[in-house]
Amino acid sequence: MDDKYKFIDFLGLRFNVANCLSALVVALLVFILVFALSRKVTMKPGKAQNVLEWMIDFTNSIVKSAFPGESGNRFSLYAFVLFLFIFISNQLGLILQVKVDGFTYLKSPTANPIVTMSLALVSLLLAHYYSVRKFGFGGYIANFARPVSFLTPVNLLEEFTNFLTLSLRLYGNIFAGEVLLALIGTVAKSFGAVSFVVAIPLEMIWQGFSVFIGAIQAYVFTTLSMVYISRKMTKE
């Protein structure tokens, strides 16, 4: 879409106000949610604690399915935060989009490739870091020549495709969802009351579907992150 953004140049770096603000809002929302749910932690869980434990069990099961045995336990927290962050990010743009004077200030942060690339970068950096830590730098390099040495270029290429597919899949899904939402919004405004009435159910349907897509994409992103980390930590 022809969204316009405000940029701030600071210390030679360029900041997109919409992205930063949205990410901040999402981070705060995640924190508030988790904080509110974890107030009374007891041996016999109450309602709030049950919800939180259900979410933790959910992300833990993602981690468990990717890692053999107990080796993935140290990534449980990362998976939990990553999942919640992406999930809330995906939903934020469906509920709230703020535009002032044509400039977007608030939307889904994951509808921007820079944000999804940042998240994918975190996952893949973790994968490479733990691979080096486990096998040593020599072992880490040698792992690129597995299972046979002539596959080394493919393995190297795979690192880039992993990064791009991981980030762009999420970006594409959420961005497309928001584009369609905005399109339906313009339809609603085009012919006055008649089109407004027609557009409302369409918007509702698409919002519901986008909630579903957002949840699925958060799940996919978290699962793939864990799989990439796990694969870097095993010898093929």
Binding site: F10, L13, R14, N16, C20, A23, N112, V115
Partner: peptide
């Protein structure tokens, strides 16, 4: 907007 990356 590399600053975004850092911020995120």
């Amino acid at each position: 907007a590399l600053g975004d990356m850092l911020f995120i």
